[in-house]
Nucleic acid binder design. Sequence first.
DNA 1: GCCTAATCGAGACGGTACGTCCCGTCTTCGG
DNA 2: CCGAAGACGGGACGTACCGTCTCGATTAGGC
Lengths: 209, 209, 209, 209
Amino acid sequence: MSADRPSRTAHHGNRHGRSEQARRAVLEAADDLLAERGFAGVTIEGIAARAGVAKQTIYRWWSSKVDVLIEAFVDDMAQHLTPPDEGDLESELRTHLRRSARFLTRSDPGAVFRALAGQAQHDPEMAERFRTECLGPQRALDRRPLERAIERGELPPDTDVDFALDQLVGPLYYRVLVTGHPVPEEFTDALVERFLAPFRTRRAAEPRA
Amino acid sequence: MSADRPSRTAHHGNRHGRSEQARRAVLEAADDLLAERGFAGVTIEGIAARAGVAKQTIYRWWSSKVDVLIEAFVDDMAQHLTPPDEGDLESELRTHLRRSARFLTRSDPGAVFRALAGQAQHDPEMAERFRTECLGPQRALDRRPLERAIERGELPPDTDVDFALDQLVGPLYYRVLVTGHPVPEEFTDALVERFLAPFRTRRAAEPRA
Amino acid sequence: MSADRPSRTAHHGNRHGRSEQARRAVLEAADDLLAERGFAGVTIEGIAARAGVAKQTIYRWWSSKVDVLIEAFVDDMAQHLTPPDEGDLESELRTHLRRSARFLTRSDPGAVFRALAGQAQHDPEMAERFRTECLGPQRALDRRPLERAIERGELPPDTDVDFALDQLVGPLYYRVLVTGHPVPEEFTDALVERFLAPFRTRRAAEPRA
Amino acid sequence: MSADRPSRTAHHGNRHGRSEQARRAVLEAADDLLAERGFAGVTIEGIAARAGVAKQTIYRWWSSKVDVLIEAFVDDMAQHLTPPDEGDLESELRTHLRRSARFLTRSDPGAVFRALAGQAQHDPEMAERFRTECLGPQRALDRRPLERAIERGELPPDTDVDFALDQLVGPLYYRVLVTGHPVPEEFTDALVERFLAPFRTRRAAEPRA
DNA sequence: GCCTAATCGAGACGGTACGTCCCGTCTTCGG
DNA sequence: CCGAAGACGGGACGTACCGTCTCGATTAGGC
C-alpha cells in the first residue's frame, strides 16, 4: 500500500501534504480497536486518542470511522486473497475457498470485513463504497481461476462465471455472515465438488455418445 | 407471536403484567423508524417519542433497540416464509426461494432482517440471539420441503439437508447481504435447477442400469 | 404522638382505616434514610422500599417526602425542647439554650430540622407548613421562660418577647444553619449573659436613685 | 469576579481556554431561572437550554447546579455588601445591617443566597464551599466597621469581634432563613442599639468614677 | 534566511442519544 | 376500603461521542 504512495517523512504539519505517520497510526489504531473492542468500540475519539492524533486530522482525510476501516481493510485484502495459479481448476478452487474461509473467519482483516459488511446493511451509501472498493477487487480475484479454466478448456466457454461464483462463495459467506456456522475444509471442498460434478459427468458421458 | 400471549386489555400498567398496547406501539414505532430513516435512525428515544411511551418502559422489557427489532421481526416472519406444501419438491423450492428473495429484498420485515443481520456482525451476543430467534425458526421452515421430499422418496434418505440448504439459500443471502445484486426469479430458479440436476440425472440413468 | 390517635391494629388493608404499622414504618424509614444518606438520599421510592410499604400508601397519606419528614420531626420535637421551669430566668435560659444547641447540632431530629429548614428556602409553600408546624410550637416553648419571668417581675412587663427571642436564639441558629460554627455552652451562656445584662444594670442602678 | 479574568473574545472554544461568552450565559441563565422558577426549577438542562449552551459545557466547568449558583452569587456579592466607611460605628452598622437585610430579603442575589444556604443544609461538601466562597468574604466585610471602631477606640481593644457579629447579624439571618419574618429597619436599628448600649453605659459611667 | 501557508496537536464548543433514577399516577387483587 | 405490588408516561441526570471550530507550533518551498 505504501508502495503506491510517495514516501512521506514524519512531520508536524506543513503545506506540502499529509503526514504518513499520522495516516498509518490512524489505520492501525482503528484495526486494533476493532479487534479489541468490536465495531462499537471504534470511535473517532478513540482512534484519535490511541493514534496520538487530533480528531481534526482524521476528519481532514476520512469522512467517518467506516471510511478509515475501509482503507485499513483494502491495505490488507490483496495480500491474502490472491488465488493460486496451478493450472488445475479443482485444486485452485479448493485452495482459494479454503483460504477465503480462513481469511473471513480467523484473520483480523476478516473481522474488519465482517464489520464492514454489517455496516453496509445500515448505510446504503457506505454499502456502495464497500462493494466498489472491497468486494469488487476481491470478486475480480475470485473470478481468475474460473476464467483461466475457461481459457484452458476445462470449463465450457459459455459458462456463467458470475452465477458460478455465487454458487461457490455464496454458501461460504452465508455461513460466515448469517448462520455463523464454522466453515471447515470439508465444507468448501464439498462446494467445489458439487460445482464441478456436472462438468465431470458430462465429460464422462460424452465419449460414449 | 400475539397468539402465545393472553389477550390483555388496555391499561397503564399493574401488577399483573405489561401493557400490550405499549408493547405493540413500541414494535410498530421501531418498524416504522427503520423503514423511514434506516437503522441509525432507530433510537430508543425516537421509538419512545413516536410510540408515546416512556423510555423506561422500553428498557423494562427490551435490552436494546436491536432487541426491539428482533421481536418486531419475529412477529412478522412466520407469516411470510412458510413454504407451500404442494407434494412436488421442485415446485415447492421454486416458490419458496422466490418468496424468500422477495421477502428479503422488498418487504419491510426484510429490511429489518438485513439490519439485524448487519448488527449481528458487530455484536456477538446479539448474533447469538439473532440466530436462535430469527434464523432458527426460519431455517426450520426452509428444511420442510426437503424433509417432505425425503419422506416421499424424491430425495435419497441420506441427503445432507443442512448442506443442501446452504447451497440453495446461501447464494441468495450472499446476493442480498454482500454483493447487493438483484435476485430475480431466474436466479432462484437456476439455483433450484442446479440443486436438483444430479438427482434427475441419477434417476434418469438408473432405469437403464 | 400515638397517644392522640386511636390505636390501630396491624393489618394489610381493610375498610376500617389506615394502618398505624405502615405509618410508623414510613416515618422511621424516612428518619433513617435522612440520617444515613442525607436529604437527597430520602426518596419516596426509598422510603417505600425500606418501610416495606407501597408507594401509593405514602402518597395516600402524605403529599411529599418533606411532608413525611415534617411529621417525623413533629413527633420528636416536643420531647426534646420543653424548657425547664425552675423559677429563675437566667438558669432556665442557660439550660434551654444549651439543650437547643445540642438538639440542633447533635441529635437525629436536629438533622431533620436542618434539612427541613434548608428545604424551606427552596419551597415557599413548604416553608409555610414548616413554620406553622415545626417552628410555631417550638417558638411557643421558647417563649415560656421569658413569659414566666415577666409574670414573676424578673423582666419588665413591656418586654418585647419576640425581639428578645430573636436576640437569644437568632445567633444560635445563625451558627447552626449559616456559618456552621460549633455552638459550645460558652457561646449560649454568653448570649444569655449579654441579654440579661441591661436588666441587671438597671436594677443595680435603681436603688441608688 | 470578571475582574480577575483576562478579557476573552467570543469564540467556540480552543486550546487556550473557555468561552467567556458561554460562561456568562450560563451564570445569567441560572440566575434567571432561580428568580423565575425557584431552586427546583434550576436544572442543568434548563440552564443549558436557556443559555444556548451544551450540557457538557456546563459539566466541563462546574460540578453541579449549585456550583453554578455559587459562582453567580460571588460575582454579585461584593458589589452589594461592602459596608460604608463613615468614621462612626453606629452609623456604619445601621447602614450596613439595613443594606444586608434588604439584600437578603429583596434582591435577586439575595434569593440565590437563601437557596444556597438552604442547599448547604443538605450537602456538607457544598456547605464547605458555600462557607468558604460566599460567607467568608461577606463576613470579612461585616467585620470591617467593628475593626475600624476598635482602631478608633470606639470599642475596647479586647472586643470579641466574632461574637459581636453573631449578635448583630445572627438575628437578621434567623428571621430571613428561619422564621421568615420581615426585617424592617426598626429591627436592625434595634439590634445595633442593643449591641452598642453597654459601651455607651460604660463610657457614661466612667467620667463619674 | 525570512515569509507564508498547509498541517499538526489539542481541546472547547453546540449537540444527540445513551441508560438510570425517581417522580406522581394508575390499575390490579387479596385481606 | 386499605394494603402491597408494580407498570406506566414523564423529566432530569451525568456520560460518551459526534462533527465543527479555533488556536499556537511546526515545517518546507518560494521570495
